[in-house]
Amino acid sequence: MNTSPRVAVVIPSYKVIHSILGVLAEIGPEVSRIYVVDDCCPDGSGDLVEKSCNDARIMVIRHRENQGVGGAVMTGYRAAIADGMDVIVKLDGDGQMDPGLIPFFVSPILDGEADYTKGNRFFDLAEIGAMPKIRLLGNATLSFMTKISSGYWDLFDPTNGYTAIHRDVLRHLPLNKISRRYFFETDMLFRLNILRAVVVDIPMKARYGEEVSNLEISRVIGEFFVKHCRNFAKRIFYSYYLRGMSIASIELPLGVAMFLFGSIFGSCQWMNSISSGQASSAGTVMLSALPVIVGLQLILAFLGHDIRSVPSKPFHLLKRNRYLDAHASGVQDAK
């Protein structure tokens, strides 16, 4: 009986006919199945793969309507789960991701160190120069927003789509609710945090050729900001009020209330002072400044707690241990 872990690769395919065959050729023997999801590609990338590749591991899945990169990945995920794959790697077909790194993405998951691994092109500072400056700035901005909304403060490079995930974690994610477009990568992190899954960065080099990215950060940053705010609010509610409470549950609302009161009250008094020409009293100044200072300290204390609360115990091992404990208990009862 072969008990070795089965690794699958999901490749969303849309306007990548000039590079996808090269990507497929580089995928090593450690991969058991390859799912190429033709997301209603106008260039017929699915047909190209079927005609040009004889690799028995490859399965082409077609969408009748374009569902976006997130929708294509979700389709591949469902197929991999149905086929009993243990670890599923998401790889783009544009040639920017080196398939030779697949073992490095899979190993932390199989070794029980992570539930989800994610590429980080910023790990080596010497490699950052290869990234276009506007993309670098956009990624830095999106990265900061992702840290706040997802709760994974130790991660970077949120738009990097080179990822791997354990099957048991994937099965507990609401795949039908995850964003279908470019936000799906950061939305995945939000959903993973709700599960308390462990996410680990994997250093990788950026490979940039003549391909043109379909993601224009200047166009999506406003949309991403709104969605990040929504996910942040949901995460705070789920983690600090619905699922459990701690001192941080009090620090955040109290800190925000005091900071806003001090800021608004102080601004009103400052404008009144300007219009009347009379200086505010020392008591008025203290009544404005003290809530701002104390409120800011409480907010910083909450952030410190949130940063220390990054998940550290892999979810798929906890689920497996609970199953084994329940099974062992059943065996003992039977005896």
Rank of each mutant, 00 (worst) to 15 (best):
C229N: 02
S275L: 13
Y162L: 07
Y152N: 07
S13W: 12
D94R: 02
A289Y: 13
H316Y: 04
T3I: 15
T75R: 05
G84H: 04
L317N: 05
L175E: 04
V212N: 10
N54T: 15
A140H: 10
N193Q: 01
S239R: 14
E127Y: 10
A126H: 12
Q297W: 15
L296A: 03
L192D: 02
D201N: 14
A72W: 07
L125V: 09
G129Y: 14
R62K: 04
H316D: 07
D168A: 08
L91E: 06
N176Y: 09
T75F: 08
I134G: 12
I102A: 08
D86L: 04
N176W: 03
C268H: 03
M1C: 13
D43N: 11
A126R: 13
P158H: 02
E65W: 13
D115Y: 07
E65G: 07
R308H: 06
P12W: 13
T284W: 13
V169Y: 03
E50I: 02
A328T: 14
G71W: 05
R33W: 13
M271V: 05
Y35D: 00
G28N: 08
S32I: 14
L298R: 00
S276A: 03
N214E: 10
G119N: 11
R196I: 10
R171F: 02
Y208K: 12
S312F: 00
T186H: 13
E26G: 08
